[in-house]
Amino acid sequence: MIGQSLHDLWFGFGVAFQGSNLLWSFFGVLVGNLIGVLPGMGALQAISILLPLTYVMHPVPAILMLAGIFYGSQYGGAIGAILMNMPSHPPHAVTCLDGYPMTKQGKGGVALGVTMISSFFAASVGIVVMIFASPLLVQIAFKFGPTEIFSIMMLGLLAGSTMSRGSALKGVAMTVFGLLCGVVGTDVNSGSFRFAFDLPELSDGLELVAISMGLFGVADFLLNVNRMKSIGDTGTLKLSDMRPSKEELKRAFPAMIRGTIVGTIFGAMPGTGPTITTFIAYALERKVSKTPAAFGTGMIEGVAGPEASAHSKTQVDFIPTMSLGIPGDAVMALILG
């Protein structure tokens, strides 16, 4: 089996390294980074915009371009979350908790550098796992039914509600409010409106762009509209500023490993998107930390762990999509098409 996998891998590299395919991959990553920075424009929106272009393309470069958009938008979303406190993609909402405080401390470049290293490390591990462990992970994924998937989602929601600083009651209220916003729209089973107040505009649910801009963009603007205080030194950010120190790497590397393991485990399970994975990874970092109260004030582990889990989950998501034909999330559903 390993010999056949290596043979198929060698053939796949031969196809992927063709000049035209490399150009389409580069184009996808570039577009993904540019669109991923925009508030509310994550991988799903970016792929949806460029999906008509694939109708006239060969399937191989089309999939390579869409995968490049997927990966590029993941890192592009982290840029907005760290530098502007605006999660362009839901998984990066956790990155805001410690990424933006690092920016206010003048360490925004370090946070971006750690994010880049975490994404490369986690994606590399995810590729190896996808190549050699796909049959085993597929068997594990078959054993997860509705009860197990519900338990994982409940774990992610509880982690998200209890990780917020301050009152735990406010954290739970935040999660409940998010669930109420999520049920607005048309019921997929009965086709009836839920909490839409007979407004046709709400039939598709609340717009993510409007929510993110209202809760994060406009609120942050009104908070700082008449303040002249500088937030870090982001205006003169240089490439050398993105190089973390040895001490910072020493703190971030264990978090990268733990985040990669979390993303790999949940990546093989259909229906669990990267958002739940990042919340679980962040909760795990707080659990194993000797100073959990410091999270939310600029802890580098709070950036490395969730970002590693998101990128490893992104890679391993291809296992159920390509082997079972069951997409792991909405982005994988588009790529499967």
Rank of each mutant, 00 (worst) to 15 (best):
M1H: 05
Q4Y: 07
F13M: 09
A16D: 10
I35P: 00
A43G: 13
L53N: 02
P59F: 12
P59G: 13
G68Q: 01
I69W: 00
Q74K: 13
Y75G: 03
P90R: 02
Y100K: 05
Y100M: 11
M102C: 07
Q105P: 00
G106L: 09
L112T: 05
G113W: 07
I131S: 04
S134K: 11
A141M: 05
S151C: 09
I152D: 05
M154G: 02
L158W: 07
L158M: 15
G160N: 14
M163H: 01
S167H: 02
K170M: 10
A173N: 04
L179Q: 02
R194G: 00
E201L: 12
L206Q: 09
M213Q: 14
R227T: 10
S230Q: 07
T236D: 07
M242E: 04
E247A: 14
P254N: 12
T260N: 09
I261L: 15
G263M: 06
A268E: 02
P274I: 07
T277M: 10
T278C: 06
Y282M: 07
L284Y: 07
S289R: 02
F295H: 15
I300E: 05
I300Y: 09
G302Y: 07
E307F: 04
A308S: 14
H311C: 10
D317W: 02
M322N: 06
L324P: 03
G325L: 11
A330I: 10
L334Q: 08
